[in-house]
Design a protein around this nucleic acid. Structure first.
Lengths: 192, 192
DNA sequence: TTGAGAATAGACCGGTCAGTCTAGTGAGAA
DNA sequence: TTCTCACTAGACTGACCGGTCTATTCTCAA
């Protein structure tokens, strides 16, 4: 494994726990046994590093989206739900520290437009893919014809992020499950 | 206005925008024209200061809860919605920077148990007061008898926080309104 | 075998951080 | 009038911050 990869790996873990401002380069280097020269050889700056960590985070997210949204054994609505259940499993493995996008978004969007734009773009990507899935659900009659898949997808994602924050505070998955139950029972009942 | 009050006022504004780690004591002092000695006369430490700022934030929240949840001109469900509409107006005045509890919760709960507990306690307080309101809604038949007011209140609050994060990223109130529409139409339709 | 460039290595930089310390000021009590 | 104490004032401390710099080592192509 290359130094760059080691740094990004550690970055995923440490940024999730510490956030951006509480993560020192020094600490990252100590944790990975990397000299400072290597870090600044591979990355322009701390900000550049964090942005690349977000890219790596998004690779995982997209793998999860493919795994769930393209599962032919499930109905479209069940596929959408599956994605968040996969995410919940990832959160469990991480110790219920929530979602890195939510964490960095909250911390940095008040002062750093680069991060704000980056993270909004990530949410937007995810939301779009879920929206096509919900579009399919609408075609198949799982949700009402007059429903707006794009708005429903944003709603689902935003509420999920809220649940993830509460789950981080409590170190407990319950808010995640409750939110999914509520959302999908509301979505199905509305067409029942 | 006393020095202490000036500092807490500025703290409300600056912590919302900058978060905890990006807010320097120096900057706070510069912004308020306060010498350092005064700050450390009134507050034990930066952490102590931030915890007191949260207390002040919660005073506002409780005022909002009283204003809305005890409004006799509205049905119980409408009172609950009113609280979040009031919050939305506050967010607008602040430039759509979201909710301080959500911001500090995300930033600090991974590393600082004191803040994690404090902020979870704040959410819990708010949720409890909304739950009694929803309990009353249940008594009056606005929501199903078998609904759990406490869970519904947590759900509402958590989803709101997610919408607030997205609103902060976009500097736009739309996610807030969409979330409220979805939640309350789901809640009423289920008993239709 | 040698030359070139990528990568490692860590001392070092100026600046800023939270927090301390001592001196001084001002208002109200005695 | 004088004493007291809450409060103001800001210089100062040591640690740590992100980032730079130069020297060295490694890898691999010519």
């Amino acid at each position: 494994m290359t130094t760059r990869e080691r740094l990004l790996d550690a970055g995923l873990e440490m940024l999730l726990q510490h956030g951006y401002n509480d993560l020192g380069i020094q600490a990252l280097l100590r944790a990975t046994g990397t000299p400072k020269g290597s870090f600044y050889h591979h990355f322009q700056s701390k900000e550049d590093f964090a942005l690349q960590v977000i890219d790596r985070y998004m690779e995982e997210v997209h793998r999860g989206l493919e795994l769930s949204l393209e599962d032919p054994g499930l109905t479209p609505l069940a596929r959408a739900r599956r994605f968040f259940e996969l995410s919940r499993e990832k959160y469990r493995r991480d110790g219920y520290l929530g979602c890195m996008l939510g964490g960095l978004g909250q911390e940095l969007s008040g002062v750093n437009p680069t991060f704000a734009a980056k993270i909004e773009a990530c949410f937007s990507e995810i939301s779009c893919r879920i929206a096509s899935c919900l579009e399919e659900a609408r075609r198949q009659g799982e949700i009402p014809q007059q429903a707006d898949p794009r708005e429903l997808a944003n709603l689902l994602l935003n509420c999920w992020e809220g649940a993830a924050l509460r789950s981080r505070l409590l170190r407990d998955p319950a808010p995640l499950d409750q939110m999914l139950d509520f959302y999908f029972s509301a979505a199905t009942r509305s067409v029942g």
